[in-house]
């Protein structure tokens, strides 16, 4: 599939940087500086940029353990709610511990996705 017609997951819009971009675009729209259609295009650009950046630039690895509280699989999206979870980064001695974490995960083998 040609790269320019390809759709990317909108999943990462919920990350902090995605929320920040969305907030900024909201402000610009409510100030009548830009049109909502333009904001949608920018968000689509963001989907592509962050997907590519995470795939190309990031090499870090991570393992985590915990107790699975809730799991759900719907429309090819896994959602886990894990309690008492411990994250171990590959070059960090101190593990990160959280009471609970939610995982939202899309299929990496989505048709048309770059592999």
């Amino acid at each position: 599939m040609a790269a320019n017609t390809q759709a990317f997951y909108e999943l990462y819009r919920r990350s902090s940087i995605g929320m920040a971009l969305t907030d900024t675009l909201d402000d610009l729209i409510s100030d009548r500086r830009i049109e909502p259609q333009l904001a949608m295009k920018i968000l689509a650009n963001f989907d592509r940029s962050i997907t590519e950046a995470l795939a190309d630039k990031v090499k870090a690895r991570l393992t985590f353990k915990g107790h699975l509280d809730t799991y759900r699989f719907c429309d090819e999206v896994w959602t886990f709610l894990i309690k008492d979870v411990t994250f171990k980064m590959d070059n960090q001695t101190q593990p990160v511990i959280a009471e609970k974490i939610r995982i939202v995960s899309c299929n990496s083998k989505r048709p048309g996705d770059p592999q």
Binding site: Y12, S15, S16, T51, L54, A55, V58, K59, A60, R61, L62, T63, F64, K65, G66, H67, L68, D69, Y71, W78, F80, I82, V85, F87, M89, V96, A98, I101, I103, S105, S108
Partner: peptide, 28 residues
């Protein structure tokens, strides 16, 4: 459960992490 995740953004305890690959093991 065993999961292999990739290309993720993790927000926890007010900090943010990015990872290329993650392995998770947990029991229900």
């Amino acid at each position: 459960w065993k999961c292999v995740m990739k290309d993720g953004v993790l927000t926890v305890n007010g900090k943010e992490y990015v990872f290329h690959k993650a392995q998770g093991e947990y029991e229900w």
